[in-house]
Design a protein around this nucleic acid. Structure first.
Lengths: 137, 137
DNA sequence: CTGTGTACTTGCAAAACGCAAGTTCTGATA
DNA sequence: TATCAGAACTTGCGTTTTGCAAGTACACAG
């Protein structure tokens, strides 16, 4: 009753969750920019529109990638946080950075920061994971 | 004159290339299933439609991810292959497999195969890279 | 010179997206 | 306690992208 999948391939199943132009940007903002609220995401550089954002937040919640953090009886100031499943996307993100560094035209400043990831990917992942895990408000 | 990007963020720039539901499936087929021709891709389990496939092959060629392999004066049997930029996506693919293994509901058979990747990711990447690099027809 | 296979193109309906404008709470202020 | 601003969505609607079916173009086999 819950099988709307095009196939059971892991790549496909993953793409059915975050294979679009916006979802990973929301996750990026949560991971690296510390954004947590609807309004935060709306202010992102790429300019996501309101209905798409609401749709993705709902979908990501249903898929268990994010959750509402502070048991929101109130709607105002409701904040989201990544679940372990969401935090688990960090290695993928790191590899995207590394690939971009090698094959896309990035600024020197960005290259410097990605160099740190390349130098010690494991501790980069550990460090970010910790900051994401500890603030469980 | 060539700046249609929503931002210069590496994640965003990457998503503008392969951030959709089909592109990474084509790349998956080239990497792991040995598919090379239009007809091959069309037969994939997920059932990509002809116009989308043609569009993506063209886009991936323009972006330098794939190229026509055997200098096709002829159109019949024209085959595609991954460029180094395309092969470079392998670590991302590997991480997607690993994330799927941890957080999605996969078959035991798939888990076994992903275990090999987890056990020695570097040599998995090296092995696949070699098979992709050597057949330069 | 006629079929057959491969590689696309085209047309059209359906879904997703992008933008602007509402709506609904909630907490602060008068 | 009435009002008002802010945050978090929802709704409508025109545009773009997808999905599906059908058609076209070109090489090669016989």
């Amino acid at each position: 009753m819950k099988q709307g999948n095009r196939s059971r391939c892991p790549i496909n199943l993953s793409l059915e969750i975050w294979g679009d132009k916006w979802t990973l940007l929301i996750i990026r903002d949560m991971m690296f920019v510390g954004k947590r609220t609807y309004g935060d995401f709306l202010k992102s550089e790429e300019g996501i529109s309101t209905n798409i954002l609401a749709d993705r937040l709902k979908m990501l919640t249903e898929k268990g990638i994010i959750e509402q953090s502070n048991s929101p009886q109130t709607r105002s100031g409701s904040a989201y946080k990544l679940t372990p499943k969401g935090i688990g996307l960090l290695p993928i993100m790191a590899e995207i950075y590394i690939w971009s560094d090698a094959h896309l035209d990035l600024s020197d400043e960005l290259r410097d920061r990605i160099q740190d990831i390349k130098d010690d990917r494991a501790s980069f992942i550990a460090a970010v994971t910790e900051t994401l895990t500890k603030d469980n408000s």
